[in-house]
Design a protein around this nucleic acid. Structure first.
Length: 425
RNA sequence: GGAGGAGUGGCCGAGUGGCUUAAGGCGGCGGUCUUGAAAACCGUUGAACGGAAGUUCCGUGGGUUCAAAUCCUACCUCCUCCGCCA
């Protein structure tokens, strides 16, 4: 969420930036009128409350004085009764307006960074860098679902029996590879990149979903638990960012760097018909997430560093990829700038997103009340939050299946993972 | 799921209707003393919004009252015990 005063004072900029994302600007327009009404009402009700507070003290004093003074209090009380009724009425009105204003503010997206290219969809994303090269094969490489089904390690039909479309059953080598990749990523980020590992709840309440921006606008993409104020997390970003919700940190603690493995659950309500084959778009998938809490001064650099941390996973696995800067129309609601890492999939002859790294500045921190106290200063400030996948495990698995497939139908094990496959018993 | 208890500032904790802009302590910060430190002593120290005046905040939401941390009510969370359970 943006600061009220910022929107008020930069209403044209907010409208323009919202339009760049391809979003409707009617909420921005409505903000202006509701906000003005709120300020007016606030002034009125606050001055009435001031009068009431003063009179209240006066009555307290008079009540303890002489009979004469007690009488004075008795004449004052009916007056205050009227004032109180008026306050109650205005407070109710103000409450309604504030609720509406809150809805509006929560539905206004973040301001995208100046270095984000303008555009309407993923066609307009700009290539930032590439690493490695497309592998060559002496045979025609299969897609990962062909590799998986031929080896009997991916079973989509039985998964459909268990749960429906967009679920997968991993068996044998695939299920172990999934687990090994998860461990490899966590080990890398904790031992080499200085992240602390956390394992959060996979169900969170609506307050947490609101702070990170999934609610109220994107409720349709979430799985909700019937009769509970609980949702299945769509990404570890939600529970991990919310760790410090409504808390004030010390500047010396920053930056705080967490990495977390969680399964992720997405209904992807609008996605039916897209990527129906294979592991690409599932209702449940594993992900290792990277989350940082930083000062405003360092967040720009910390995003670059986080991107490098995520990239290193692919580099060590020897998987060719490119990094694109998302254009304004493809940018997530809460993000000011996002890099997507796209891995090369030879079976499908295409690049597919495998990580998304974003800087939210103070947008999530303001929604969630995540603050820090700058050294030597009395006033607290909002932290900046950054996160990215490091990486999506299921997509890493399919990238390994497609890139490491052999002519005989088997799949080679990337060198860096081989220690994880040594026999233990 | 059942029974009981409890939620007050960074922490502990007093406060059962009106100078509570929340006592006291711990911790933090500054100082005196000291070669330096400790101890002792003195002072200072909640948060959000606002340019300011001011408003709001004692788990949360309603209610009673001229006035609520304090009374009523619903809910939430935590603790103890019982039940169930990996």
């Amino acid at each position: 969420m943006l600061e009220l005063r910022f929107i008020r004072e930069n209403i044209d900029l907010v409208r323009e930036k919202t339009a760049h994302r391809g979003l409707a600007t009617d909420k921005v327009d409505e903000f202006a009128s509701v906000d003005a009404k709120r300020l007016e009402l606030l002034q009125e009700v606050e001055s009435l409350k001031n009068q009431r507070n003063k009179a209240s003290k006066e009555i307290a004093q008079l009540k303890q004085g002489s009979d004469e003074e007690k009488k004075q209090a008795d004449t004052l009380i009916p007056e205050m009764r009227k004032a109180s009724e008026r306050i109650k009425g205005l407070d109710k009105e103000l409450g309604d307006i504030q609720e509406r204003l809150q809805e509006l503010v929560l539905s206004i997206p973040n301001i995208c960074s100046d270095d984000v290219p303008k555009g309407t969809d993923d066609e307009d994303n700009v290539e930032f860098k590439t690493w490695g090269e497309k592998p060559t094969f002496s045979f025609t490489p299969k897609t990962h679902w062909e590799v998986g089904e031929d080896l009997d390690i991916l079973d989509f039909e039985r998964a459909a029996k268990l749960s429906g479309a967009r679920f997968a059953l991993l068996k044998g080598f695939a299920s172990k590879l999934e687990r090994v990749l998860t461990n490899f990523m966590l080990d890398l980020h904790t031992e080499r990149h200085g992240y602390e590992e956390v394992l959060p709840p996979f169900l969170v309440n609506s307050a947490s979903m609101t702070a990170t921006g999934q609610l109220p606008k994107f409720a349709d993409d979430l799985f909700a638990i019937k009769d509970w104020d609980l949702y299945l997390i769509p990404t570890a970003e939600v529970p991990v960012t919310n760790i410090f919700r409504d808390e004030t940190l010390d500047e010396d603690q920053l930056p705080i760097k967490y990495t977390a493995y969680t399964p992720c659950f997405r209904s992807e309500a609008g996605s039916y018909g897209r990527d129906t084959k294979g592991l690409i778009r599932q209702h449940q998938f594993d992900k290792v997430e990277l989350v940082k809490f930083t000062t405003p001064e360092t967040s720009t650099q910390e995003l670059e560093d986080l991107l490098a941390d995520a990239e290193e996973v692919l580099q060590l696995l020897g998987l060719h990829y490119r990094v694109v800067t998302l254009c304004s129309g493809d940018l997530g609601f809460s993000s000011t700038k996002t890099y997507d890492i796209e891995v090369w999939l030879p079976g499908q002859e295409t690049y597919r997103e495998i990580s998304s790294c974003s800087n939210f500045l103070d947008f999530q921190a303001r929604r969630g009340g995540i603050r820090y106290r700058p050294n030597g200063q009395k006033k607290s400030k909002l932290v900046h939050t950054i996160n990215g996948s490091g990486l999506a495990v299921g997509r890493t698995l399919l990238a390994v299946l497609e890139n490491y497939q052999q002519e005989d139908g088997t799949v080679a094990i990337p060198e860096v993972l081989q220690p994880y496959f040594e026999k233990r018993f």
